[in-house]
């Protein structure tokens, strides 16, 4: 989702008996739901996986500022503008906590940033879709943040302490964002014909990309088992996707909007909706860089970073001068 397609570095899940004593003690702590803290021993692969996952999540927050930032200057009222600005600011804040959580694993924010900018590290595929109308601000809050929450609520119980604690704070804000998004959709769905059309169009465009946020189907996701054993992934992709559909379909009905899937139907037996899988070839295209906005998103991040270099250098240089002046003054 925010960290979809994280490839596990493990070679398949070992049983406790196959582990050496140190690794076994580690796994047993996880099995007892104890939190792993930065200074604790951890397998190298656990560390590497977490860096990838938390880093990808942080990058998703940062790149995720762009599609919504696209509408800040066009927000239709002062109140909507303030709400949207505060929301995008929260995303920057989430990026900050997550980079801090990743730093406790021994990687710097600048290193992670360089990997994002070079395209070596990924971010959630959803942010490679454009925001074309104001209704997209509603759809992003409702569907994208809704899908994010679905994944992140269980991650509050993830085994790595700093990540779990960052998630607690992030989840509080995300659920607020989702309500704000739904509120925009309600206004649009109950508004003029043009607004209704915008709302339906936004749902049409964001429905399948939102379902893709959970990652490929479990049967095609070969890396999940180790992450689940380490409790850095708490549910399978398909479980979360089902939960999301079950939650969202009635919400769309309440709005008077139509989910763009003619085969959606309640299945009494499984106690959930049957629905059409997203087009996974589109998903893999987007991951490879061929989404509608991949080029623009990375270009925008690179531009901000490159054009900001002189500012970062100057702030550091000034800080150094001040420190040096204090040393001289103290002597």
């Amino acid at each position: 989702m925010y960290a979809q397609m994280v490839k596990s570095t493990g070679q398949g899940v070992k049983s406790l008996d196959e582990m050496d004593p140190q690794e076994r003690a580690f796994q047993e702590r996880i099995n007892r739901d104890e939190k792993i803290e930065p200074k604790d021993w951890m397998p190298a692969a656990y560390r590497k996986n977490l860096i990838r996952q938390i880093g990808q999540h942080a990058h998703s927050e940062i790149v995720g500022q762009l599609p919504e930032g696209n509408w800040i200057t066009r927000a239709p009222t002062l109140e909507r503008k303030a709400i949207l600005l505060a929301k995008v600011q929260d995303e920057a804040g989430h990026g900050l906590y997550l980079y801090c959580a990743a730093e406790t694993l021994g990687v710097s924010r600048d290193e992670l940033t360089e990997d994002l900018l070079s395209g070596k590290m990924k971010y959630s595929s959803i942010f490679n879709y454009p925001t074309l109308t104001w209704a997209d601000m509603g759809a992003v809050g409702w569907l994208v943040d809704g899908a994010a929450i679905m994944n992140q609520v269980p991650l509050q119980r993830t085994s790595f302490g700093p990540y779990a604690r960052a998630m607690v704070r992030i989840c509080k804000e995300e659920s607020f964002h989702q309500r704000q998004g739904y509120d925009i959709m309600m206004k649009m769905a109950n508004g003029s014909d043009a607004q209704k059309r915008m709302a339906q169009d936004a749902l049409n465009r964001f429905w399948y990309p939102s379902l893709m946020m959970f990652g490929p189907s479990d049967k095609d996701s070969v890396h999940s088992a180790q992450s689940m054993a380490w409790k850095i992934k708490m549910n399978t992709n398909d479980e979360l996707r089902q939960k999301f559909v079950d939650q969202t379909v009635p919400q769309a009905e309440y709005l008077g909007l139509t989910v763009p899937d003619p085969d959606i139907a309640w299945n009494e037996e499984k106690g959930g909706y049957d629905f059409t899988e997203p087009d996974w070839s589109e998903f893999f295209d987007v991951i490879k860089g061929n989404g509608p906005c991949n080029v623009e998103r990375l270009a925008a991040r690179n531009k901000a970073w490159d054009e900001g270099r002189w500012v970062r250098d100057a702030l550091l240089a000034h800080g150094e001068k001040r420190r040096a002046a204090r040393v001289v003054a103290a002597e």
């Binding site: 500022q65 930032g69 503008k81 505060a86 901000a304 970073w305």
Partner: peptide, 29 residues
């Protein structure tokens, strides 16, 4: 100031600029 949101030289500045813009929009209201 709100035009900077998502494009500032460093994350802390992005947050601070958004804060400034939010204050100014609040005062405008």
């Amino acid at each position: 100031v709100s035009e900077w949101c998502g494009h500032a030289p460093v994350l802390e500045e992005d947050i601070a600029l958004a804060n400034t813009a939010l204050d100014l929009i609040g005062q405008t209201r």
